[in-house]
Simulated assay, not measured.
Amino acid sequence: MTDWRAFSVDISDHVAEVTLLGPAKGNAMGRDFWRELPEVFAGLNADDSVRAVVLAGSGKHFSFGLDLAEMGSEFAPLLADRALAGPRSRFHTLIESMQASVTAVAESRVPVVAAIQGWCIGGGVDLIAAADIRYASADAQFSVREAKVGIVADIGSLQRLPAIIGEGNLRELAYTGKDIDAQRALRIGLVNDVLDDAEAALAAARATAAEIAANPPRVVEGVKNVLDHPRRGPVADGLRYVAAWNSAFLPSHDLTEGITAVFEKRPPVYKGE
């Protein structure tokens, strides 16, 4: 395909393996990630030899989520006092482009099997929610953490997770921003199985992808298409709504406080302003 900065892509025996490479610590999602992800999946969709995809993270962690250090500059014009239509409109476009990046995974022509190890936070959960099947290592931890930094999650977790873990579990995670371990993730259905370590989780993902790839490819694509069909409309509508909501209401002193507290490594103090 091509050389990527945020990913490696290897194709063998009808299975594509897409691995997050960072380059930020913990495979945090910066500009390269958001730009390259839809291009990677467009290339895989165009390759008829690909019948399944394994999605994995390199190193000790799947992903720390949004790279605030790199992407924080995108928030700056919006956080200025009295941000007007121009900055809000540009931020709305940014949200839509980031949503489209993860939607490219959800709309993959072939099933996507994720292998998760270590931390999977924020945008990392958005990403695995777009996969079809998820395996975790025993040390995996998950967090829909956006609320803790003053953000309404807007890249797909709130739209895709209800069908995966149910409304009650999602509301608990999204309202609190709490961390959960792999066993809790298994109990609520966020992951299909928990394996001993990262290598075992990746091996399980590869084995399932190989099983999928051994079946008639058009039939598998048909099954995925039929299963996805009832959810496409509600998910798309929910993404449009949250993009508009955040463009209107995200600018706040609490958001500034949340981001500042992350960099200063201290608890935030929110005032509802």
Results as ranks from 00 to 15, higher is better:
Glu273Asp: 14
Arg231Glu: 13
Val53Thr: 05
Asp13Ser: 09
Ile128Ala: 05
Val219Pro: 00
Gly26Val: 04
Ala52Met: 02
Ser12Trp: 10
His61Tyr: 05
Ser143Gln: 08
Val9Thr: 03
Leu78Val: 03
Pro230Leu: 11
Asn27Arg: 05
Gly272Gln: 09
Val191Ala: 07
Ala136Val: 02
Ile212Trp: 08
Met1Thr: 00
Ala106Asp: 08
Met98Ile: 04
Glu273Cys: 13
Gly156Thr: 03
Ala28Met: 11
Ala214His: 04
Ala114Thr: 03
Ile116Trp: 05
Ala24Asn: 03
Asp254Val: 07
Gly72Arg: 01
Ile11Gln: 07
Asp196Thr: 14
Gly258Cys: 11
Leu78Asn: 03
Gly123Gln: 02
Ala129Glu: 04
Lys178Ile: 12
Leu227Phe: 06
Gly30Asn: 01
Cys120Ala: 13
Arg218Phe: 15
Pro267Thr: 08
Arg160Met: 14
Val194Asn: 02
Arg90Cys: 11
Leu161Asn: 01
Glu107Ser: 10
Ala114His: 03
Thr2Leu: 14
Pro38Asn: 10
Thr19Val: 15
Leu190Phe: 11
Phe7Val: 01
Val54Ser: 06
Leu239Asn: 00
Leu227Tyr: 04
Arg240Ile: 04
Lys60Thr: 11
Ala24Met: 07
Asp181Pro: 02
Ala200Gln: 10
Leu68Cys: 04
Asp47Ser: 10
Ala198Val: 06
Ala83Phe: 05
Trp245Thr: 00
Ala115Gly: 10
Asp237Leu: 15
Asn27Gln: 08
Phe91Leu: 06
Asp81Gly: 11
Asp254Phe: 14
Ser63Ala: 09
Pro216Gly: 07
Gln99Thr: 03
Leu170Thr: 01
Ile95Pro: 01
Pro234Asp: 08
Thr260Ile: 12
Ile155Asn: 07
Glu167Lys: 12
Leu66His: 02
Ala243Trp: 04
Leu21Met: 11
Ala182Met: 05
Arg35His: 11
Lys265Asp: 15
Arg90Ile: 07
Phe75Asp: 01
Pro234Glu: 10
Arg88Phe: 13
Tyr241Arg: 11
Phe263Trp: 04
Ala69Ile: 06
Ala204Pro: 01
Ala205Glu: 03
Arg31His: 11
His92Tyr: 08
Arg231Ala: 15
Leu170Cys: 03
Glu199Ala: 15
Ile259Gly: 12
